[in-house]
């Protein structure tokens, strides 16, 4: 029987990610990994794209993983895990190894997923490998020092979209990767956040049991890049959810479903003002960008409500 999704029950299982990894204090990525892996009772085998999570958890000769884990390169976590899964399926079918109900997972940051790894991800899910790809989206190339990615929000200061005298941070909105993955018509796609841990865990369970390729986009605060205190990770993540910058939803066999409606939809400004990467937007000459962002958040939220039949 599946472990009940309560912290006390989950804590009875073996911790799959050990302490001693070298992610920054207050990192969102390891919270996501811990919550998701705790939700899966079955054995897991993991592929990891190059990125913070990968480098910080496996600095030779140390590994923080108590489960089988492979890192290949930056852009190919999806194709790597597709090879692992194909090997498993082949050898089980031939009777060379026993069926063990292994759940295959890949973790990649937004750089490795939205950008350089998008092709490999698209190919792997189209082929229908049974695996869950998890994008921990912190909205920039944090591992190499906070460069912009296509997941970076409009106006955010990064080291390649700096807020300068003429250009006020990133000039484009975030790519809607979750919708792109939903357009692949794979059995399960979801957007989640660790602040809503039970939702994240339930989605994880659905994803690994969907019988095909699954994708989850999970918001992962990076206090170094977002510029907030280390203890504010969860609170600021939830603000992104409550202002509908990061709505929680799932697309199960093509059916869009809203997972969470904020009691009161907060202005996006409430989320922005808590992060140093948006500080320059509050200067009079840049404030219009907050309005532009609010409009885009509203437009996407309304669109999502229509897709979910909740408009």
């Amino acid at each position: 029987m599946a472990t009940k999704l309560t912290p006390k029950e989950l804590a009875k299982n073996v911790e799959r990610l050990t302490p001693g990894h070298r992610l920054c204090a207050g990192c969102g990525a390891s919270i996501i990994v811990r919550q998701m892996l705790a939700a899966i009772d079955e054995p897991v085998v993991i592929a990891n794209a190059t990125g913070c999570l990968e480098v910080a958890t496996t600095i030779y000769p140390y590994t923080a993983w108590r489960v089988p884990w492979i890192h290949n390169a930056f852009e190919n976590a999806a194709s790597t895990i597709s090879g692992v899964e194909a090997a498993y399926r082949s050898m089980v079918r031939q009777g060379k190894i026993p069926e063990q109900n292994i759940k295959f997972l890949a973790f990649g940051g937004d750089g490795g997923t939205y950008d350089i790894g998008l092709q490999a991800l698209s190919g792997a899910v189209e082929r229908g490998h049974q695996f869950l790809y998890v994008c921990y989206d912190n909205g920039a190339y944090m591992n190499t020092g906070i460069q912009r990615s296509s997941a970076t929000p409009l106006g955010a200061h990064t080291t390649t979209s700096p807020a300068g005298k003429v250009v006020p941070g990133k000039q484009q909105h975030r790519k809607d990767l979750t919708a792109i993955m939903a357009a692949h018509n794979i059995p399960y796609v979801a957007q989640a956040a660790p602040s809503k841990w039970r939702d994240l865990m339930e989605k994880t369970r659905k994803a690994v049991n969907c019988g095909g390729a699954a994708f989850m986009n999970v918001l992962s605060s990076c206090n170094r890049g977002w510029r907030h205190n280390t203890d504010e990770t969860i609170e600021i993540t939830q603000l992104a959810v409550d202002c509908c910058y990061w709505p929680l939803f799932e697309v199960e066999n093509g059916e869009w479903r809203l997972s969470y409606t904020p009691k009161e939809k907060r202005p996006v400004e409430d989320w922005l003002k808590r992060q140093g990467r948006f500080r320059h937007l509050f200067r009079p000459e840049n404030r219009y960008l907050i309005d532009v962002m609010q409009k885009e958040v509203d437009r996407r939220w309304e669109h999502l409500l229509r897709l979910c039949g909740a408009a």
């Binding site: 912290p7 989950l10 804590a11 911790e15 990610l17 050990t18 302490p19 990894h21 992610l23 204090a25 207050g26 990192c27 969102g28 990525a29 390891s30 919270i31 811990r34 919550q35 660790p194 841990w197 990770t233 969860i234």
Partner: peptide
């Protein structure tokens, strides 16, 4: 326990 990034 649920939110500790370092399993600590």
């Amino acid at each position: 326990w649920l939110f500790c990034p370092d399993s600590c």
